[in-house]
C-alpha cells in the first residue's frame, strides 16, 4: 500500500531535481522552469500530508503557493522581457556586470 513516506520520497526527489536545475542552469528562463519544478514538488508533499493526516491545512497552503507562483511568473516574465530588450541575452554570465 502506498503510504505517506512514498509520497514524501517522490516529493524529495522532485525537489532535488529542481534544486539541481537551479544550481546548474545559467539561462534565466530555464532557472524559472527549475523553480516551478521545486514549487510543484512542495505542493505534492503538502497534498500528501493533508491526505494522510486528514487535515485541510496542507491543501490551503498548496493553494496559496499556486497563487504566489502565478504572480511570480507574471512579474518575473515582465522583468525577463525588459532584460532581454536591454542586453539581448538571458544568460546570467552575460548579465553579471559587477565583477568584484
Amino acid at each position: 500500500m502506498i503510504g505517506l513516506t512514498d509520497y514524501l520520497i517522490v516529493s524529495a526527489i522532485l525537489f532535488s531535481i529542481g534544486l539541481m536545475g537551479v544550481l546548474r542552469r545559467r539561462n534565466l528562463l530555464m532557472l524559472f522552469f527549475a523553480t516551478e519544478v521545486m514549487l510543484n514538488a512542495v505542493n505534492v508533499a503538502f497534498a500528501a500530508i493533508s491526505h494522510y493526516y486528514n487535515d485541510l491545512t496542507g491543501q490551503m497552503f498548496a493553494f496559496f503557493i499556486i497563487a504566489i507562483a502565478a504572480s511570480e511568473v507574471a512579474v518575473g516574465l515582465g522583468i525577463l522581457i525588459v532584460l532581454y530588450k536591454k542586453h539581448g541575452s538571458l544568460d546570467l554570465d552575460d548579465l553579471a556586470s559587477m565583477r568584484g
Binding site: 497563487a67 504566489i68 502565478a70 504572480s71 507574471a74 512579474v75 516574465l77 515582465g78 522583468i79 525588459v82
Partner: peptide
C-alpha cells in the same frame, strides 16, 4: 491578500512587458 497580490502582479507584468 492573495487576490490583491495577484492584481499587483498583473499590473506589474503589463507595465514591465508593455514598455517600448
Amino acid at each position: 491578500v492573495a487576490a490583491v497580490m495577484l492584481l499587483v502582479a498583473m499590473i506589474a507584468g503589463i507595465i514591465l512587458a508593455g514598455k517600448k
